[in-house]
Design a protein around this nucleic acid. Sequence first.
DNA 1: GCCGTTTTCGGCCCGACTGTTTTCAGTCG
Length: 573
Amino acid sequence: MALSNQTVAKVLSEIGEYLEMQNVPFKPRAYEKAALTISGLEEEISEIYKKGGLRALEEIPGVGASIAEKIEELIKTGSCKYHEELKKKTPVNLSELTAVEGLGPKSIKKLYQKLGVKNLNDLEKAAQAGKIGKLEGFGKKSEENILKGIEFVKKSGGRFILGFVMPEIRNIEERLRGLKAVEKIVVAGSVRRRKETIGDVDILVVSKNPWPVMDYFVKMPEVVRVLAHGDTKSAIKTKSGLDIDLRVVPHKSYGAALNYFTGSKDHNVALRQIAIKKGYKLNEYGLFKGKKQIAGESEEEIYKALGMDYIEPELRENIGEIEAAKEHKLPKLIDYGGLQGDLQIQTDWTDGSDSIEAMAKAAASMGLKYIAITDHTKRLAMTNGLDEKRILKQMAEIDRLNKKFAGRVKILKGSECDILKDGSLDLPDGVLAKLDVVGAAVHSLFNLPREVQTERIKRAMANSNVDIIFHPTGRIIQKRDAYQVDVEELIVAAKKTKTILEIDAYPNRLDLKDEYVRKCVASGVKLAIDSDAHSSGHLHYLEYGIAQARRGWASKNDIVNAHPAEKMLKFLK
DNA sequence: GCCGTTTTCGGCCCGACTGTTTTCAGTCG
């Protein structure tokens, strides 16, 4: 229970990186792959182990006898000897250093051995002193890039990617919900607003008997520090570094407290100003006229008393939602669970870890009606991208599987086709025309000048076979910025060419980001919400794509895959 | 270290790009 999937994944991927330092062949990839799958598992790995032991662990794709044993050791003892030994040889803060774009295991090893660089701080000092540029194999440019990378890591430091920490948060929430003394529980704050990244977690509880709740909370096995322990507020830090506040509020203030702790701050300030204008006072205990509480038990009654419609948490950023709520002009947001299909899925034909069949099975069990198989294409050689011959073979395989899955889930033929430097595509038009869904994506030359990059993607859009642009800006949250591209111009071009833009639901992509989603919605450009799953455990990431769409004010009608397959296909070219 | 309708042993790791070099190592995903 105490050991999160993220922690297991981190240890495994560190083992992979240490092996990479020693030039061990093949093993690094095996560890990396297992880590990727585990980080996407919905079920806690300790639960899987508790239920089915080693054998259940080995059933996880990419996990064999050896890695299963290491996971067992981790669950039982909290550490892994093999990992510790590797770490002794190069005792560096790997996750800190690899977060710097362009720094990999080999460079980290060199920097440690030559300059004693162990962490980000050492790295920055060495770079600023000009020591790195003088090192063999490095130069001035490398040093500059490292400094830039450090800047970026610092900017995003201390925050967590929502989709990656949500399983841990939900696990804690569920355990607290199971306590007798807990009447109501909800996770508020930026988690409830579904921000891409969160700084800490605010949990709200209604209880007449707070002590047992607080006591349980501060003694949970994952707690490494108790920062506060009172009867209305306690705060802890968990092993994974997450700060969690727990507040107990009285029943009659529940709505007001929820509103206050959900934020955003700007939204709350605007609400309080409206309350003042109406002669009221709004705080975390309720909405008051003089000393009399006129609302506060629920959020709905507060918004109503202030003369507006209820505002969904994802919209509370004070960027027009309050005005819209007053005029009853808020959109009806797409529902969680409102998707019928998923249009970007990778399989073991390229860099995914599951077969087409396994993905179809998982999609069916999630209630999806259709999926598009969109493996990489040949230019992306590192993923064993598909060429003309192999994609035709894959299409035949899909035909075969569709017979098997008839009535359960429809498998569409697709591609994540590489956009080449000049905007042409990595597969001939004749092949693309045979596919149901063609997604096109940029995977190279991220640093072209803005106009060139924009033209490149526009040219891909102009291809009558291209239905969707996948992850249109290429950003990876906390790792690298979007490439330079004029998104507004892309939106105009998308409208003109009837090209769909994707909201990539993978938690560290969520690209398009909310403000661009909103612009698409305003311009009538259709969107797709796709998991970008590389294993069946990633399909549930769709939830975070829906959250992103909601924060961009999108309704069901804006999202092509919120519709049945026949209707969705009509939106395509 | 994982995997198997080509296999329980022998494949898997392919290529473009960058920044260092003057022919190549490291990173990307």
